[in-house]
Amino acid sequence: MKKVLSFVLNGHEVSAEIESHKMLLQVLREEFQLTGTKEGCGQGECGACTVLVDGIPVDSCIYPSFEVDGKSVTTIEGLLGEGNVLHPIQAAFVAHGGVQCGFCTPGMIMSSKALLDETPMPTVQEVRNALAGNLCRCTGYVQIVDSVLSAAEKIQAEIKQ
């Protein structure tokens, strides 16, 4: 069965006719070719597919697509500014070695975005807890946590200016 969905995707109003059993992840990757959102497990266990729906981080691999109707979805592609300017969180992951193989990175950054939107200056513990649902096999998380903390400081410094 197909259903027409209308929602805001990375700031643009979009609509698409979707088979209703599809999950949001498939819609993003297949209908909109937004392949920055990754499928690590397909079961909501690893967090590689994290996107923001109305600002809340969700595992898009188990998020029924029809639920986004009328909502706003932000993916990793939506963080990039005009002229390929990295979002401060993305820039911090580059500067502090928060990336190795990179497969968990988009989801990791989206969870970090949700955290910093809610808690602009988190503690180490808050960062670790916010990333509890995002698994990484390469980094041991140390440089990821450093990246998020540094991004928080940068964003706050920019706001103060």
């Binding site: 990295l86 580059v94 990175t105 988009p106």
Partner: peptide, 11 residues
């Protein structure tokens, strides 16, 4: 920083 990092963080 790693040369492959910007593309990876941008998806």
């Amino acid at each position: 920083p790693r040369p492959d990092a910007p593309d990876k963080v941008a998806g």
